[in-house]
Design a protein around this nucleic acid. Sequence first.
DNA 1: AGTGCGACCCGAACGC
DNA 2: TGCGTTCGGGTCGCAC
Length: 274
Amino acid sequence: MPEIAEVRTVAKTLNKRIVGRKIIGLDMPYSKIIDGDIDEFKRQVIDKEFTSIDNYGKWLFLILGDVTILSHLRMEGKYFIKPSDDALTKHEHIIFHLDDGSDLRYHDTRKFGRMRLCNTEEIYRTEEISKLGIEPDHKSLNKEYVYENIKNKNIPIKTLLLDQTIINGLGNIYVDEVLFASNVHPETLGKMLTIEDADNIVKSAKRIITKATELGGTTIRSYTSSLGVYGNYQNELMVHTKDKESCKICGSVIEKTRVGGRGTYFCPKCQVKK
DNA sequence: AGTGCGACCCGAACGC
DNA sequence: TGCGTTCGGGTCGCAC
């Protein structure tokens, strides 16, 4: 569930809370979260200090000077800061003991999240990061770029936007919102879309992600908070989670369907399939 | 190469 | 009530 706006919120909060703290110990009750050699990971992060926290799309960068932990929260990954002597809870899988008596704890009910180590100067050359597209609100994202990347695709636009290689950072919630705002039906194949559709998608994505970032992201379902921080974009949602409710624009009944195996909400009147 | 889909996970919601 | 089943959601890897 954490998409770009939520990950930015986590990065911002972690920057305030752990920069300057040194890792003095590490426990890994469920070490499969970490890709690569576990002992090497441990050896590399012990005695390092968090120098800054950043993100690119949904990827979080926990920067420890010359090495960086790439952390992907997938659906339910969360970080918490707690006193070291607090008992571990069921879904706390990776525990960083810090030099001020607190822990940074990675919590993930579904164990889908992943972490791996890389050299800080090589972040953008890693397999995970190098293939990612442009962030929705970055100035270099424009209609020509999007149009060129979708115009030959025999794939539904919803699926294309969820694949992170064109636009980086949109997930199921914001893709539904962007397509609604663009008057594009989620099942429309990439090759059916016009440059005007691409323009609408770009403009909507910029507006929606800018607003969602300002509001700290979206808090829906059981996924509530990370580090005690709640987002407020859920109050702005037009279609996502609105099955059978009336469209705020035209009054039609919002429908729920599946596109590429994902729950998809849309307005049948505002978003006509081509 | 391009495209589709199950696996990874587990708790909540749902159906009987 | 209590059980079994379905759903969800990001990404990878395999199958066609």
